[in-house]
Amino acid sequence: MSRAFNRFLPRFALVAVAAGSLAGCGVNTIPTAEENAKAKWAEVQNQYQRRADLVPNLVATVKGYAKQEQDTLVKVTEARAKATSVQITAADLTDPAKVAAYQNAQGQLSQGLGRLMANVEAYPDLKSNENFLALQSQLEGTENRIAVARRDYNDAVQSYNTTIRTFPAVIGAKVIYGAKPMVPFQATTPGADTAPKVNFN
């Protein structure tokens, strides 16, 4: 019994040291941080999709009142189509060009909505229309949710990027996972970091 135990003890110690070394190299920390960042990105996309779903209703409501704003309505519709056609997967979050293309498309839609909201100031009947007021409120709430989702994503990316660049996790990041830094969300279009104006006071 004692011999078997003596033979087992060195093996157990070796396994314990190896497990401790791997844990210290970020074997669990890195995928946890990566999955958290991916989940936060999914919420960013969810909120952008919510906004894209509201745009056709907004355009239809405005069309009935703002006949002179057809050019702006067309541009908003085109920007929405482009924003929904540019897709990015969680695997693309380490590719700055793909992230920038997605951000640019969303920024163009933000700008179009901002112009549309500014232009409808001239339509008092529209501004008092219940459907328009409801859409205005939903868009305002969506823009707030987008801002929160982007902030949460950037926080998760910062945590992940810090993890894969600091010792001892950097060893596991390079050797085991081949981890690359994720790209934080940045406003690439002038004014894209500002929510469309929806205040009609």
Rank of each mutant, 00 (worst) to 15 (best):
residue 66 A to W: 00
residue 132 F to E: 01
residue 102 Y to E: 00
residue 116 L to M: 11
residue 181 P to W: 06
residue 95 D to Q: 11
residue 108 Q to S: 09
residue 125 D to K: 13
residue 141 G to D: 07
residue 15 V to D: 03
residue 74 V to W: 04
residue 142 T to H: 04
residue 26 G to K: 03
residue 69 E to T: 03
residue 156 A to R: 09
residue 142 T to L: 02
residue 24 G to T: 00
residue 113 L to F: 01
residue 119 N to P: 05
residue 98 K to V: 08
residue 75 K to N: 08
residue 178 G to H: 10
residue 141 G to Q: 13
residue 173 A to Y: 12
residue 69 E to A: 09
residue 124 P to D: 00
residue 200 F to C: 14
residue 90 A to V: 11
residue 50 R to Y: 13
residue 112 G to I: 01
residue 111 Q to P: 03
residue 1 M to Q: 11
residue 145 R to N: 14
residue 188 T to S: 14
residue 55 V to L: 10
residue 88 I to T: 08
residue 163 T to L: 00
residue 52 A to K: 01
residue 65 Y to G: 00
residue 148 V to P: 13
residue 136 Q to L: 08
residue 104 N to M: 07
residue 20 G to F: 11
residue 140 E to H: 13
residue 6 N to L: 15
residue 16 A to F: 13
residue 118 A to V: 11
residue 23 A to M: 13
residue 18 A to E: 00
residue 19 A to R: 03
residue 155 D to G: 00
residue 185 F to T: 10
residue 138 Q to N: 10
residue 173 A to T: 05
residue 142 T to S: 15
residue 4 A to V: 14
residue 49 Q to L: 07
residue 170 V to D: 09
residue 153 Y to N: 09
residue 44 V to Q: 05
residue 39 A to W: 04
residue 156 A to G: 08
residue 162 T to H: 06
residue 32 T to H: 06
residue 194 T to Q: 14
residue 18 A to K: 01
residue 165 R to G: 14
residue 65 Y to V: 02
residue 91 A to I: 06
residue 73 L to E: 03
residue 52 A to N: 14
residue 182 M to F: 14
residue 71 D to T: 12
residue 139 L to C: 07
residue 104 N to C: 00
residue 99 V to L: 06
residue 95 D to S: 00
residue 99 V to K: 05
residue 39 A to N: 14
residue 64 G to C: 01
residue 102 Y to W: 10
residue 131 N to L: 07
residue 185 F to N: 12
residue 11 R to M: 15
residue 149 A to W: 09
residue 75 K to E: 11
residue 179 A to H: 08
residue 40 K to M: 15
residue 77 T to R: 05
residue 198 V to L: 12
